[in-house]
Design a protein around this nucleic acid. Structure first.
Length: 517
DNA sequence: GACCCCCGCCAC
DNA sequence: AAACGTGGCGGGGGTC
């Protein structure tokens, strides 16, 4: 709260009032810093690390990401046309039902419409101990069995999807055609960054863009984009915990095997005719297990939830399979990887005793929730792998920023992936190899028997001229053959880096060269 | 009109 | 009884 109501002052005085306010604010920060000195009984390594991250974060925030205006306008045009078409349909149907229109983005109106006027069965959801009527996607999909509601539901879900995408496409960008975000380095419980609209109130969160919206983010003229993901980062951190704490290396070994999900499928369903041959076993894992789900699908989607103490009930809902199926899956999964039970119990014990966890990166977190509450336990179980992955990625980001200097420009951070651009005139293979070199973070462990183990999380690089994935004519043809809506061509999009790229940029961002040169 | 909460939904 | 974690944003719709 400003100590002087700024609207009561003249412009000159207003500035003075804000200076007083800012001055006092800085004093508070200073006092907190002094107190912190007495709190640390060790080198405040994470605090120093986060201070170091300010430089690359601020650089990204100042730089912004170039927007291809033509692509943005085209996206808006297509979505507006689709919205008009769908909304006309929806309103015509709504009038037929209750003699007036309905707003697909108003839960209140939809509750009146579906559960009142149409008398469909009410769909209740419960969250944080509160039950409420819902018209979210899951609720509407349950109403989809009523044939007369089906076209309405299809329209509403499609319209929500359109409006969600339009809001991102219409986000205000800065006058230099760049979208800027504000990264908050210390904004989460785990050490992940958060991202929100910029300090000028332009731009938006750049960490939750759906893939089809990413195409409008493009490399600067003369530059090319590289994105590097951490491969199975959280799973490997989980496997590492099982190993260093309980000497169970089964899960980490499965991660290293090259196909975690097929290995899991082998362990969970040992009586299938596995051969030990990678290709043949993959084919077996790709057989249908239940409805459209393959054994491998179950291992992949069920494994992640089970790792984080998901209940059979929730996971069954998520995968849309009977609870019984998930119960059997979990039982086998825990037998296949005994480290999970020990790890979950170990964390529960830690919550009861120290209320505190420390990650392999030295990040300490105190848990203030009730230590016998399942919700607290789930937070704690997720903490170490999620936090470690954040610190791992940010350490690599810092190294690339610090050591590669002006050769690269860091563009974005998305929790387990980073994006930078490099000059098209540069030696592409060398730049990427150098960046990948910074992904090495050695962690070693010697088992009681003397066997050495190490944690390795490789980086996987992609390259292109915009942030979308490449879409070729072949991809379009494939979609048409399957009767799907064909995706839009994107020859300049990201492709997996395999040592070279023979492409040439086909689309130059519009109206920019004149502005820059 | 400013402010706030709820809802739904996007990402990793 | 509750039901897998971490975030941020826009629209609706209420209050003041």
């Amino acid at each position: 709260m400003p100590i002087i109501e700024s609207h009561l002052l003249q412009p000159g005085q207003q500035q003075f009032g804000q200076q007083i306010y800012n001055g006092l604010d800085v004093c508070l920060t200073f006092e907190i810093r002094q107190e912190m000195g007495t709190l640390f009984n060790h080198t405040p390594i994470i605090y120093e690390f986060e201070k170091a991250l300010q430089a690359p974060a601020l650089e990204m925030m100042l730089r912004g990401f170039l927007i291809d205006e033509r692509e943005r306008q085209e996206g808006i045009r297509l979505l507006e046309a689709q919205t008009t078409r769908l909304d006309n349909l929806l309103q015509a149907m709504a009038w037929a039902v209750w003699g007036k229109g309905v707003n697909p983005n108003s839960p209140k109106q939809l509750i009146d419409f579906f559960y009142g006027a149409m008398k469909l069965p009410e769909q209740w959801i419960s969250a944080k101990g509160v039950k409420r009527l819902s018209t979210n996607r899951e609720a509407l999909e349950k109403l989809d069995v009523y044939l007369y509601a089906r076209p309405l539901i299809a329209c509403i879900l499609a319209l929500r999807d359109c409006s969600k995408q339009l809001s991102v496409l219409r986000t205000e960008i800065d006058s230099d055609q760049r979208m800027r975000t504000s990264y908050n380095i210390a904004g989460t419980e785990t050490g992940r960054w958060s991202s929100s609209q910029s300090s000028e109130r332009t731009g938006t969160n750049l960490q939750n863009l759906s893939p089809r919206l990413r195409k409008m983010f493009v490399a600067d003229p003369g530059w090319k984009l590289c994105g590097i993901d951490l491969e199975q980062a959280e799973s490997r951190e989980v496997g590492w915990q099982h190993g260093i704490l309980y000497e169970d290396w089964t899960y980490l070994d499965a991660c290293y095997s090259g196909d975690l999900h097929t290995i899991t499928a082998r362990l969970v369903w040992p009586n299938l005719p596995w051969t030990g041959n990678g290709k043949q076993d993959r084919a077996i894992a790709d057989r249908i297990f239940y409805r459209e789900f393959t054994y491998r699908d179950m291992s992949k989607r069920g494994g992640h939830g089970t790792s984080y103490y998901g209940t059979p009930f929730t996971m069954a809902r998520h995968l849309k399979v009977p609870v019984r199926v998930m119960e059997n899956f979990q039982k086998s999964f825990f037998e296949a990887y005994p480290g999970f039970r020990k790890w979950h119990q170990g964390i529960a014990l830690e919550l009861q005793t120290t209320h505190r966890l420390v990650t392999p990166f030295g990040r300490e977190r105190h848990f203030f929730g009730r230590s016998n509450d399942d919700a607290t336990l789930r937070e704690a179980i997720a903490y170490v792998p999620q936090s470690s992955t954040a610190d791992r990625l940010n350490l690599i980001l810092w190294r690339i920023w610090y050591h590669m200097g002006t050769r690269v420009r860091i563009m974005a951070q998305v929790h387990d992936a980073l994006y930078f651009q490099y000059r098209e005139s540069d030696d592409e293979a060398e730049v990427i190899a150098k960046a990948l070199g910074y992904f090495s973070i050695p962690m070693e462990h010697t088992s009681p028997g003397g066997k050495k183990h190490s944690l390795v999380v490789p980086g996987e690089a992609k390259i292109g001229w915009n942030w979308g994935n490449q879409v070729t004519q072949g991809d379009v043809d494939k979609a048409v053959a399957r009767g799907l809506t064909p995706p839009r061509l994107n020859p300049d999009g990201l492709i997996k880096w395999k040592g070279s790229d023979s492409r040439v940029r086909t689309e130059q961002p519009t109206g920019l060269l004149a502005r820059i040169f």
